[in-house]
Design a binder for these strands. Structure first.
Lengths: 248, 248
DNA sequence: CGGTAAGTTGAATACTGTCAAGACAAGTGG
DNA sequence: CCACTTGTCTTGACAGTATTCAACTTACCG
């Protein structure tokens, strides 16, 4: 079962002309240098819903910039227990974990039909030789990845269920907003089970919480469609500090 | 209140002659290249018990190789809630998280009087220019750091208290063993509270679990001294697969 | 239009947290 | 050196939260 690889022809979209430029790999790099990234992406891969981009144990020879769709990553221990470690939206880089020994230590699975740009490690090293800002960028991205798991750690380690789900919704809302989508109206691409697994809760608890939030008028839920009615309340539930205006 | 910096004189211990070489920064690097690391460590820092090596928000301009003692790292959110993210033993590298923007996103605190080798980022970049294996090593270390938080994620996300503590003990035992210490007889340098925070449990739960493990004859506890009496039982509790011999 | 997967809800249970009291060890000052 | 303070740890009783089990509803897909 191989995934569909799409070679990038000479006149196809490159990093320097890609709409994702401001949220993807080139984020924060000088535009002159972004052009030098164009050679980095030689192909793309389409991943149908439910299929894996990579699996734990596979050789890691590339990073993947999510171009379209959404993915989840999950750890899988020896006994087969899985733990969802993150959900990825367009512009985000997948595959940064498990660069140890060049082997993936998680599975990446498409939540919907998706497409990624392939960035080979060899090419990164090569281009990095004369483009230190790329090296730096990779380092930043990996740190961001660590920060991401740290956020999850705080959630799992010191929040109660209600707070976890509120944080989850808030995080999703903010990331979607950064992508130009509505921050109050969106579709969750992941199932209750995946959310529960990610947050260390059972599917029933998640379901009850959604119902409760809706009953309290904080959100409106219809299956995977969510509308945030009271963002301040969500922030409150998430234990976030109030917005500056509230301090006056 | 500054920490004591110790300049490294010409004939002081270098990476190439350090006893920690097989478990520290040079791990896995060709010995010829390890000599080129000698210039990397220009000073050491002593950290008295309870003092910080670095704090969240500080500029990150160096990595620290723990030479003696032990540290904990902890996240601190806006509201001041802390979450212990790891305990560090000699030979392990601290400061890898938060390389994003070159700012630490956790605090590193000494659990006992400790000493670290300072490896400046500038020097890493410099030496890395002509020593690709160093770049690779840093990348590996960061991935290892990610793997570490992933381990914690699995624990917090899908284990019950008993399993968490067993995993914790097992992990500690294995790391101490790798350092040449006894794997069955050791002193935990961290308090019950720190263990609890790390595992997402209360101090009382930790205490009760230690008592229970002791009552069941799995371990023997005296304050922070632990003796593992039945390693197989611990592995069982931790949900680890049995040792190969048990499969016969 | 069935059949299956996903989601909801209720009741009972189990686990972990909270509160409180006391034990123990280590360190301080008289 | 001893009384005293302080911080750490242990243990019990109770409360609260999240899980489990089960029944049922609702979407989704061929």
């Amino acid at each position: 079962m191989t995934l569909k690889h799409i070679p990038i022809s000479a006149h196809a979209t490159h990093c320097s002309t890609c709409m994702m430029g401001n949220v993807c790999l080139p984020t924060g790099m000088p535009s002159a240098e972004v052009e030098q990234l164009d050679d980095l992406v030689k192909e793309r891969i389409r991943i149908p819903k439910g299929r894996r981009l990579f699996s734990k144990g596979q050789n890691l020879d590339a990073l993947y910039a999510l171009r379209l769709g959404s993915l989840k990553t999950q750890l899988e221990d020896v006994m087969g227990v899985v733990q969802v470690t993150g959900f990825y939206l367009p512009g985000e880089i997948v595959g940064l974990d498990g660069m140890l020994d060049g082997v993936h230590d998680s599975n990446a699975i498409a939540l919907e039909d998706s497409e990624v740009c392939v960035v080979r490690l060899i090419d990164i090293d090569q281009v990095g030789m004369y483009l230190p800002s790329l090296q730096q960028q990779i380092r930043r991205l990996m740190s961001k990845e660590i920060a991401r798991s740290h956020q999850a750690l705080i959630a799992l380690g010191s929040m109660r269920s209600e707070q976890r789900l509120a944080s989850f919704l808030l995080n999703l809302s903010q990331r979607l907003s950064a992508l130009g989508y509505s921050s109050t109206d969106f579709v969750m691409r992941m199932s209750r089970e995946e959310i529960g697994n990610y947050l260390g809760l059972t599917i029933e608890t998640i379901s009850r919480l959604f119902s409760r939030f809706a009953r309290d008028g904080v959100i409106k839920v219809n299956q995977r469609e969510v509308r945030i009615l009271d963002l301040e309340a969500i922030k409150e539930l998430a234990g976030q500090p109030c917005t500056p205006s509230n301090y006056n």
